[in-house]
Write a protein that binds this DNA or RNA. Structure first.
Length: 854
RNA sequence: GCGGGCGUGAUGGAAUGGUAGACAUACCAGACUUAAAAUCUGGAGGCCGUAUGGCCGUGCGGGUUCAAGUCCCGCCGCCCGCACCA
């Protein structure tokens, strides 16, 4: 009898799929389309288990949709620009392009053995000039519509590498590569006008019903809408008024001082002729804009000497301070501080000995503020001790609304809606990215490149021996003629943030070889992505940028109206984790913690120890796979050992897809054993030519088959892959123990093989053909359960006494309630419990349960 | 600080308000084997009992309900996201 040989089976069937070309997607009118997409990978060179899990989930959906008569688009590409390629070039002297394309080739060859139903004819990398040239065309169209612009902005600047760093690339205030202290620097940079879409991006979240609530909430918080009062303080020296924004105008009577950002125009003006202020501002600027830097930074302030008048009382003067915690790009870059009701303001006032106006609202009796500010929730009703705007007792929110209304009527302020979302700075002083297609001309200024000159290609002859952007020091690449006047001019040497590349690739997949960014007919047909799958780490940046891009592409005529929310459904899958084995007595030669590889440890008398030395080993459960922790499981090795179907089966089983799944050797082995078992069972069924049948056993098996069809279908269609697999295990057990005849078993085996096929496509093809079915199981028809077979004629009803199960009875499914009641009361457990008494109540839920209340 | 999520056997986890622990791992026993592996069969939440059986049981404390892992209130613990955002 043949044994299950994954290596042989998988290669054969992949060849058969390729030959039949069944995964190639073409527009067609006679089937509903379905576009399933997994977030495309960065070509690091190695696939990891997270990729396997992500793509397997997408593949299950794609294959299931194929079987249910859909025209499926399931593409794959490479998010190929970015710093690792440049860093590799700097470290080893190669070229980012060679490094990237060779990694892509490696990863593709690791990915193909997984047997994914991908249309590889649509593959592209974002570093292909054919792709980034179209991205440059998009940029020019956005520029024309005012969706991208240039402005001066404060950024993280690495003074050693001489480049801007993203916030994520700054660790503890230092550049992650150079280790240099990051500075804040003002640079003229390109920005996408995403902030124009704040309200739209926020309100449209409500329509994304098939997105995880968590992701919608994260985006909502990120956009950060707030309602407040904007008004100005007049200066006593006759200088221009200082605009401030506050979400708590109800605390205006507790104002202690007015604060401005070190980057505020007032601070800048003072800086010019006041060395003390200039020094202070420079001090503030040294601190990066990252979370770490901000959190550890001390609150610093400096009195400007300027005084302003309180809007409600011209006699009341407030000092104006420069404070390092005030952000220029939120609100107006200036605030008023109310120490009684804001902890940060209170701390600042105590530090600099500024006046603290006593509590003027309270829940009960006002208590003087000492070291803790009094901050009642906006929904609480508070008692007003000293108030304006006619407020007496109200909730905080009512007070805010009343105050805004009061200020608007009195004419000294107005209600303003603010968003936290800032424009997206896309300029990077990097080589390995999409060149920004503009030219700097001495006479014409910043001029967009002509579309016929696209793509503006990256030059190949660059070196990475010096820090900074190689494009800046390239001898000829920068030189060009002005598209407007024809005079000698210089190219922009900044490239685009790599998030730009991934913000529209999903649209490009609908027409990957087009001479334009998209083809409307194709986009109209294939968009939107029906199911998008990826990691939660992209919940904000990538998904928000893509939503902005879809809108911008709609405005510029590259996407149809219906695609402004490009992802109909989103699923965020969990990680694949693995135990870590930490040696508790020995360190590495370098004195670091010693972590063992899984194969280096063993269990002895319930304790984990190192095989070689017998050292005790601490087992840290369920940790993210990481090279430094030696707990990475290589998919290539797993596929070699067990086959792709086993890897696919395992990553889907055990844990719900949105949760982390822990990779265990025993689990992977069990998956392999199970597939081997299915192979053996089906082989035996095929070999059984006996003409037996047993009506009862046949019927029982076929009923189970229909139930399995139902449950697995529900599981696959609702991301319940683990439940679907559990159901398939159970059905396999049923089949192997069934006393049914060979014909019924054959029929059940066909169903089993077909139901497994989205998860284990190769094994299913093999068994499908072994069972004598013509054609590919990948192109078969997904089974539909017979509703009549899903309900049994007799059901087992649990009998509860006072809500606790005490017995069960077997009754015909449609038995009358009264009959069921009678049977229940005759039950020995009920009789015993009643002990002659009458039950208070009997609840009969037909087909479900009986509860006798005593 | 603000926002969100999760607590179920040794483990991963099942369970439209209706038999808690499906399915799997690990474990135990048995069959086959000279032996092991593989395979097959069976067992298993805890406590008491030879057993029929009984009591307890989904982080803790209350509540709603004939019935609560599931709904409500209050704690405790863990995880995640955001955060000098005025």
């Amino acid at each position: 009898m043949s044994r299950y040989s994954a290596a042989e089976i998988e290669a054969n069937w992949q060849a058969a799929w390729n030959k039949a070309g069944i995964f190639r997607a073409e527009r067609s009118g006679d089937k509903p389309k379905y576009y399933v997409l997994e977030m495309f990978p960065y070509p690091s060179g190695r696939i990891h288990m997270g990729h396997v899990r992500n793509y397997t989930m997408g593949d299950v959906i794609a294959r299931h949709k194929l079987l249910t008569g859909h025209n499926v688009l399931h593409p794959m590409g490479w998010d190929a620009f970015g710093m690792p390629a440049e860093n590799a070039a700097m470290a080893s002297g190669g070229h980012p392009k060679d490094w990237t394309y060779s990694n892509i080739a490696d990863m593709r060859s690791q990915m193909k053995p997984l047997g994914l139903s991908i249309d590889w004819s649509r593959e592209f990398a974002t570093c292909d000039p054919e792709y980034y040239g179209q991205q440059q065309a998009l940029f020019l169209d956005f520029l024309e519509k005012g969706l991208v612009y240039r402005k001066n902005a404060v950024v993280n600047w690495d003074p050693v590498d001489m480049t801007v760093l993203a916030n994520e690339q700054v660790e503890q205030g230092r550049g992650w590569r150079s280790g240099a202290l990051v500075e804040r620097r003002e640079l003229t940079q390109w920005f996408f006008k995403i902030s124009d879409f704040s309200e739209e991006l926020l309100s449209a979240l409500d329509g994304l019903e098939n997105w995880p609530a968590k992701v919608r909430l994260m985006q909502e918080n990120w956009i950060g809408k707030s309602r407040g009062l904007q008004f100005s303080f007049d200066r006593t020296d006759g200088g221009g008024p200082i605009e401030v924004y506050t979400t708590r105008p109800d605390t205006l009577l507790g104002a202690s001082f007015v604060g401005v950002s070190p980057d505020h125009p007032i601070a800048k003006a003072l800086e010019a002729d006041n060395p003390q202020i200039a020094e202070f501002a420079a001090e503030c600027r040294k601190v990066g804009t990252t979370e770490e830097a901000i959190e550890t930074a001390e609150k610093l302030g400096l009195d400007t000497g300027i005084r302003v008048k309180h809007p409600l009382n011209p006699e009341w003067e407030l000092p104006v301070w420069i404070a390092n915690f005030i952000l220029m790009d939120y609100g107006t870059g200036a605030i008023f501080a109310c120490p009684a009701h804001d902890q940060r303001d209170l701390d600042f006032c105590r530090k600099y000995d500024l006046p603290v106006i006593d509590t003027f609202f309270a829940l009960e009796d006002p208590a003087p503020v000492v070291n803790d500010a009094f901050v009642p929730p906006k929904t609480d009703r508070v008692k007003w001790v000293n108030h304006f705007a006619g407020i007496d007792k109200a909730t905080g929110q009512e007070a805010i609304d009343a105050t805004i209304e009061f200020a608007e009527k009195a004419g000294w302020g107005q209600g303003v809606t603010n968003y936290r979302l800032r424009d997206w700075g896309l300029s990077r002083q990097r080589y390995w990215g999409c060149p920004i297609p503009v030219v700097h001309c001495e006479t014409c200024g910043v001029v967009p490149e002509k579309k016929e000159n696209l793509p503006i290609q990256l030059p190949d002859d660059v070196t990475f021996d010096l820090p900074g952007n190689p494009l800046d020091r390239h001898p000829t690449w920068r030189n060009c003629s002005c598209p407007s006047c024809g005079a000698d001019a210089l190219r922009e040497t900044d490239t685009m943030d790599t998030f730009v590349d991934s913000s529209w690739y999903f649209a490009r997949f609908t027409a990957p070889r087009s001479e334009r960014p998209t083809e409307m007919a194709e986009a109209e047909y294939w968009m939107n992505v029906d199911q998008y799958i990826g990691g939660i780490e992209h919940a904000i940046l990538h998904l928000l940028y893509s939503r902005f891009f879809a809108r911008a592409m709609q405005i510029t005529g590259h996407l149809p109206d219906k695609a402004i929310e490009p992802f109909d459904a989103l699923f965020t899958q969990g990680m694949v984790t693995h135990e870590i084995y930490q040696n508790t007595v020995r360190k590495t030669a370098e004195g670091r913690t010693l972590y063992h590889y899984p194969e280096e440890v063993e269990w002895v008398n319930g304790a984990c120890q190192a095989k070689e030395t017998g050292d005790p080993v601490r087992v840290i459960p369920s940790a993210k796979m990481s090279k430094s922790k030696n707990n990475v499981v290589d998919p290539v090795a797993i596929i070699r050992q067990f086959g792709a179907d086993t890897a696919r089966w395992f990553v889907l089983s055990d844990s719900p897809p949105e949760r982390d799944v822990e990779w265990t050797a025993s689990g992977a082995e069990a998956a392999f054993k199970h597939l081997s078992r299915v192979h053996r069972i089906v082989t035996e069924i095929c070999a059984d030519e006996s003409d037996d049948s047993s009506p009862d056993a046949d019927e029982a098996l076929l009923r189970e088959m229909h139930k399995a069809i139902h449950d697995v279908t529900v599981g696959v269609e609702s991301f319940g892959f683990n439940a679907a697999i559990a159901r398939l295990y159970a059905f396999t057990n049923t089949l192997s123990k069934s006393g049914a005849g060979s014909a019924a078993k054959h029929q059940a085996a066909e169903a089993l093989v077909l139901l497994m096929s989205p998860m284990t496509p190769h094994l299913s093809e093999e068994l499908w053909s072994m069972l004598g079915r013509e054609g590919l199981v990948a192109m078969a028809e997904w089974p539909v359960p017979d509703e009549k077979m899903l309900v049994d004629d007799t059901v087992t009803l649990p009998i509860q006494i006072n809500g606790k199960r005490r017995a069960e009875i077997s009754v015909p499914r449609d038995m009358e309630k009264a009959e069921v009641e009678k049977l229940a009361l005759a039950n020995h457990a009920v009789v015993r419990s009643l002990d002659g008494a009458q039950p208070k109540k009997i609840i009969v839920v037909p087909g479900r349960i009986v509860n006798v209340v005593i």
